[in-house]
Simulated scan of single mutants.
Amino acid sequence: MPRIGVGTDVHRLVDGAPMHVAGLAWPDEPQGLAGHSDADVVAHAACDALFSAAGIGDLGSNFGTSAPEWAGASGCALLEETARRVRAAGYEIGNVAVQLVGNRPRLGPRRAEAEAVLGAACGAPVTVSATTTDGLGLTGRGEGVAAIATALLLPTPR
């Protein structure tokens, strides 16, 4: 039976940190995201959706601050390892869809690049979209960036 999972991630914007979102570096951004790893909200939300669908925990229980080997890890490295764990749990990844919520970075010009990088990391189709909150909430005020993801898993044929 197919399984669907949902994942959400939020990180605050800080001065002096590099910006990594959707598997890409954004060197022209004046702020980056704070976190235990590279704080890539898109990749992290995708991981959480995959973990949720497989029923094998979440980002924190798999790669949290109690796992120092993942400190500073790229979102793509986390997504690749998540996909490995999902497959080991007996599932194939049908697809992942992620929506970035925030004012920055402007995803549109690099959407295809992001989808290719994230898809390669998890070995399945990934689509990425983006929206703003019209000035409302922490993303609208420019305090942080969020992402929401869904993932479809199919049982591995036996």
Rank of each mutant, 00 (worst) to 15 (best):
Val14Met: 02
Val14Gly: 09
Val14Asp: 03
Asp15Ser: 13
Pro18Met: 00
Met19Lys: 08
Met19Ser: 12
His20Asn: 11
His20Val: 14
Val21Pro: 05
Val21Lys: 04
Ala22Tyr: 04
Gly23Cys: 14
Ala25Thr: 15
Trp26Asn: 13
Trp26Gly: 15
Pro27Ser: 11
Pro27Asp: 07
Glu29Gly: 14
Glu29Pro: 15
Pro30Ile: 00
Gly32Gln: 08
Leu33His: 08
Gly35Ala: 06
Gly35Arg: 03
Gly35Leu: 00
Ser37Trp: 05
Ser37Asp: 06
Val41His: 07
Val42Thr: 14
Ala43Val: 09
Ala43Gln: 05
Ala45Gly: 13
Ala45Ser: 15
Cys47Asp: 07
Asp48Arg: 03
Asp48Lys: 00
Ala54Phe: 00
Gly55Trp: 00
Gly57Asp: 02
Gly57Arg: 01
Gly57His: 04
Gly60Gln: 09
Gly60His: 11
Ser61Arg: 12
Ser61Met: 07
Asn62Ile: 04
Gly64Ile: 10
Ser66Gly: 15
Ala67Arg: 03
Glu69Gly: 14
Gly72Trp: 05
Ala73Arg: 02
Ser74Pro: 04
Ser74Thr: 15
Gly75Val: 08
Gly75Gln: 10
Cys76Gly: 10
Ala77Leu: 12
Leu78Tyr: 04
Leu79Gln: 05
Glu80Arg: 10
Glu81Pro: 04
Glu81Val: 04
Arg84Pro: 06
Arg85Pro: 13
Val86Phe: 00
Arg87Asn: 13
Arg87Tyr: 03
Ala88Met: 11
Ala88Arg: 11
Ala89Val: 08
Ala89Asn: 02
Gly90Leu: 08
Tyr91Gly: 10
Glu92Tyr: 06
Gly94Ala: 07
Asn95Lys: 01
Val96Phe: 00
Val96Gln: 06
Ala97Met: 05
Val98Gly: 02
Leu100Asn: 11
Val101Lys: 01
Val101Ile: 14
Gly102Asp: 05
Asn103Ser: 15
Arg104Asn: 00
Pro105Leu: 01
Arg106Tyr: 00
Gly108His: 05
Arg111His: 03
Ala112Cys: 12
Ala124His: 05
Ala130Leu: 00
Thr131Lys: 08
Thr131Pro: 10
Thr131Asn: 06
Thr133Ser: 15
Asp134Asn: 15
Asp134Ser: 15
Gly135Gln: 12
Gly135Trp: 02
Gly137Asn: 12
Leu138Lys: 03
Leu138Ala: 11
Thr139Tyr: 01
